[in-house]
């Protein structure tokens, strides 16, 4: 359960940005959360409810965009979206697949008042 510390980073980074823009409060924080990270969406949302108190994000909405795991074979170019029983070897040629999305832990933007 490291989502609380991640949420504290989200708020810290967002507050710094909001202060740069002399905002009085943050209305929205938009993050992209990769499927191939060890981060649980619900735990992130719950932690945000707790951690935002007393910050510029006290009344903010945390928008979470889920980014699916997508892999590509560097050899044959085949693209797949593995789910459940994850195998990162290409089914067509047996070579290792490269993760091209799904590892995102990114703050996209904030909306300010």
């Amino acid at each position: 359960m490291h989502e609380l510390s991640l949420v504290m980073s989200i708020i810290e980074i967002s507050e710094a940005k909001a202060r740069e823009h002399r905002a009085v409060s943050i209305r929205t924080i938009k993050v992209r959360l990769g499927e191939f990270t060890s981060v649980a969406r619900e735990a992130l949302a719950f932690s945000f409810e707790v951690a935002r108190r007393g910050t510029l994000a006290e009344h903010a909405t945390l928008e979470i965009e889920d980014v699916p795991l997508v892999v590509r074979c560097a050899a044959c170019g085949s693209v797949a979206r593995p789910a459940g029983d994850i195998c990162l070897l290409c089914l067509d040629c047996g070579l290792p697949l490269r993760v091209i999305s799904g590892e995102e832990l990114q703050i996209e933007y904030i909306e300010l008042d």
């Binding site: 810290e12 980074i13 967002s14 993050v31 832990l105 990114q106 703050i107 933007y109 904030i110 909306e111």
Partner: peptide, 15 residues
């Protein structure tokens, strides 16, 4: 309402 791009990793400070 202003939308401000951030484009930062959540793990930036750790990184």
């Amino acid at each position: 309402m202003d939308r401000v791009p951030v484009q930062a990793s959540i793990l930036q400070a750790n990184q």
